[in-house]
Simulated scan of single mutants.
Amino acid sequence: MEQKGFKSGFVSIVGRPNVGKSSLMNKLMGENLSIITSKAQTTRHRIMGILNGENYQVVYSDTPGILEPKYSLHEAMMSYVKVSLEDADVILLVVELEDKFDQQLFERFLRIKTPIILLLNKIDLAKGSQVEDKIAYWKSAIPNVSSILPVSAKSGTNVDKILDVILEKIPDHPPFFPQDEFTDRTERFFASEIIREKIFLNYSEEIPYSAEVVINSFKDQPDIIRISAEIYVERDSQKGILIGKAGSSLKKVGMEARKDMEAFFGKKIFLETHVKVATNWRKERNKLRQFGYTE
Rank of each mutant, 00 (worst) to 15 (best):
V159R: 05
Q179S: 09
V159L: 07
I148V: 13
V165F: 13
V165W: 02
D160L: 11
K161S: 06
T157C: 02
Q179C: 10
P171A: 11
K161Q: 14
D172I: 13
I170C: 11
P171Q: 00
I170Q: 13
I170W: 15
P175G: 10
K169A: 09
D160T: 08
V165T: 14
I148N: 10
L163W: 10
P174Y: 05
N158D: 04
K169N: 13
Q179F: 08
T157N: 05
T157I: 14
L163R: 11
D164I: 03
L163A: 08
K169P: 09
V159K: 01
K154G: 03
S155R: 03
P150N: 07
V151G: 02
E181W: 12
T157G: 01
H173F: 13
I148C: 01
S155K: 09
V151T: 14
D180W: 04
N158T: 06
P174M: 09
P174K: 02
P178S: 00
Q179A: 10
I162E: 08
G156Q: 02
F177I: 01
G156H: 05
G156E: 00
D172T: 13
V159Q: 04
T157P: 00
I148T: 07
H173I: 06
E181P: 06
S155C: 09
P174H: 07
L149C: 13
D160F: 03
S152D: 01
K169Q: 14
Q179W: 01
P178G: 00
F176W: 07
L167S: 10
D160Y: 00
P150K: 09
D180V: 04
Q179H: 04
D164W: 07
P178Q: 04
L149V: 13
P171R: 15
V151N: 05
A153V: 07
K154S: 00
L167I: 11
D160R: 03
D180S: 11
P171M: 03
K154E: 08
I166H: 08
D180G: 07
F177V: 09
Q179D: 06
E181K: 15
G156L: 10
K169H: 13
K154W: 11
D180M: 02
K169D: 01
I166D: 10
L167R: 03
F176E: 05
P150V: 11
I148F: 10
P175A: 03
T157W: 13
Q179V: 14
